[in-house]
Amino acid sequence: MSCGVLAIAEQVNGVFRKVTYEALSEGRVIADGLGCSLSVAVLGSGIKNNSESLGKYGAERILVADDAALEEYMTDTYTNVIAGIVTREKPCVIILGASSRGRDLAARLSARLDAPLAMDCVAVRLDAGNVVVTRPMYGGKILAEIMLEGEPRIIAIRPNSMKIAESQKTGVVEIIVVDKGSTDLKFIEKKLDTGKVELTEADVVVSGGRGMGGPDYSAIEKLAGIFGGAVGASRSAVDEGWRPHSDQVGQTGKVVSPNLYIACGISGAIQHLAGMSSSKVIVAINKDPEAPIFAKADYGIVGDLFEIAPLITEEIKKVKGL
């Protein structure tokens, strides 16, 4: 069996996404289990200097493809480059973050390499040399254990599901020359709010539902803000047009697993619960004492969220000494 774990880093403007560290840390665990090495592929433009820091998370080799044509993520060029690296390195496992970009790349790569892919994995274990992953299906209503057969096994991990661990190893940067191939896709522009905390990566998520009664989310924005967290919404709030689609938490939106999830004015439809029940601690605030969300919450408060949320914000400020 060929061996070697290849992690794929994801960076935006030279800053690595948190899930990159999670993928590297988990990749290290897998590599140790299989008794092989961990490399990481970093694609981008002008990223040479930042890449060295990835050694801290267990990569022995940091393979840097630095090229102006790789500045923006384009499915075809990135697939071509990664496929080239795979042909050369012959990894038995590829691990990357299941971000919007990571999912796009993983799916295309799986078909290109005729390789098994498990998307949105929340756990990985080795069983007599086999790689077994756990991944949610049916929007998190069911957890499946999946065995991946064939190589390289592509594991896309769900953000916020794996621990980040620093390693004693130091990585060596290798600049690699790669064939970018031809490209059909053309980058036109991007509109990014870089100040916005990404829902799927946030440690704290405060979501508002129908109980918000309108588009004024300032009370829960302040509460999320004090944690450096993200604001989410239920489907009904999104359907009302109070929040953008990208904020929707649930089976047909984003699945989140923060340390703390605060549901404000959300009754707890099965689709919403599927999207947040893997959160570590859940707090629910709702006027209706019968709301189903209370059955899933670690802590429940019956009351008016517009009165209670600001008071919680003030109390947390006190505890944090702000």
């Binding site: 892919l117 069911i142 254990e145 029940s277 919450a297």
Partner: peptide, 16 residues
């Protein structure tokens, strides 16, 4: 290339 070897329900959240 992917085989389900088990399905289970996520850990039940006990009402707090």
């Amino acid at each position: 290339k992917t085989k389900i070897i088990s399905l289970k329900y996520p850990p039940e959240r006990k009402g707090g």
